[in-house]
Simulated scan of single mutants.
Amino acid sequence: MIDVAALRRKIEDDLGFWDKEQEAMAELSPGFLGVWHRMAMVPVRKNHLGAKNRALIGLAASAAATHLYTPGVRRHARAAIDAGATPEELSEVLALTATLGIHACNIGVPLLLEVLEETGARTGPEPLSEHQERLKADFTRDRGYWHSFWDGILELDPELFEGYLDFSAYPWREGVLEPKMKEFVYCAFDAAATHLYVPGLRMHMKNALGYGATKEELMEVLEIVNLIGMHGAELAAPIVAEELRRV
């Protein structure tokens, strides 16, 4: 028999929260809540990132456009603030996470180029204008890298590329987080089960290593993002518990 009161104290002490979602899950299956707690403690025990950065990574995973899990946003924002995060750091995580939308173009533009070539509307890359070359140089300077998937966007829509350059570079020009932490945020939403954007994840892992990240830190990012799988159960548990009480 699981002592739910003791489990609650342990989760509150170890993880800093006990919300209605945990209350409902404890009502439905305290044993399952217990094994989740043990898994959630893995990055806490290892502590390669520290409490503040763990919370910021959790915030990015919860706030990503592919997930939008409000309880997680609140929970991780609260934990980050308690760990000393500043308004600038919190808003920078949101700005970095907002770049996820460009993946529509990262996936769509190469397909569009293939279709254009298949239909005879394109025979190969167009030479870049002086303006396009300058945009490429600016992106490489501000973001610290260039990847081939930007070539097609720059060719087909330099106006969009210029807009995205300013949008995505803002945290790099004005932000306060160290570069590897910025890359960890990108890794977080690319690796999330709700997105799984492999090209971006591979690139940002390489970038993070280039900024001095360790394999242990990158593994901890994945350990944190792995935990969003529980959000489905958290969302459903209060509803299921309520419906069961009606029977």
Score class of each variant (00 low, 15 high):
Ala63Cys: 10
Leu201Ala: 01
Gly212Arg: 08
Ala77His: 15
Asp151Arg: 03
Gly72Ile: 01
Leu128Asp: 05
Arg45Val: 05
Phe149Asn: 02
Gln22Arg: 09
Leu227Ser: 01
His103Met: 10
Leu113Met: 15
Gly34Tyr: 03
His103Lys: 11
His204Phe: 08
Gly152Thr: 13
Leu100Met: 13
Asp151Gln: 03
Met181Thr: 06
Met219Lys: 13
Met41Trp: 07
Asp13Thr: 13
Glu133Cys: 05
Gln132Phe: 08
Leu56Ile: 13
Lys182Thr: 07
Ala63Gly: 11
Phe167Glu: 15
Ala213Gly: 02
Pro87Ala: 13
Ala85Ile: 13
Leu28Ala: 04
Lys52His: 09
Ala121Gln: 15
Leu100Trp: 02
Ala6Met: 06
Thr70Met: 03
Leu56His: 03
Leu28Thr: 00
Thr140Ala: 12
Arg54Ala: 11
Gly212Gln: 13
Arg54Pro: 01
Arg202Phe: 05
Gly108Val: 09
Lys46Pro: 04
Asp138Gly: 04
Gly120Ser: 09
Gly84Arg: 09
Glu126Thr: 14
Pro127Tyr: 15
Lys20Gly: 13
Gly84Ala: 14
Pro110Val: 08
Ala51Asn: 03
Ser91Arg: 07
Ala95Gly: 14
Glu159Gly: 04
Gly163Ile: 06
Arg75Gly: 07
Leu112Cys: 13
Glu217Arg: 05
Val198Met: 07
Glu89Cys: 08
Ser62Glu: 08
Ala61Ser: 05
Phe17Val: 06
Met203Gln: 00
Ala65Gln: 05
Arg134Lys: 15
Trp146Phe: 14
Gly200Met: 07
Ala192Thr: 08
Asp157Gln: 14
Pro179Phe: 03
Leu154Asp: 12
Trp18Tyr: 12
Ala24Pro: 03
Ala95Cys: 14
Ala98Thr: 09
Ala40Lys: 00
Asp190Glu: 10
Leu227Asp: 00
Arg54Val: 11
Glu114Thr: 08
Ala40Met: 06
Ala98Ser: 15
Arg143His: 12
Pro110Phe: 08
Lys136Ala: 13
Met1Leu: 14
Ala188Val: 02
Val247Phe: 14
Ala191Ile: 04
Thr140Arg: 12
Ala208Arg: 00
Ala237Phe: 03
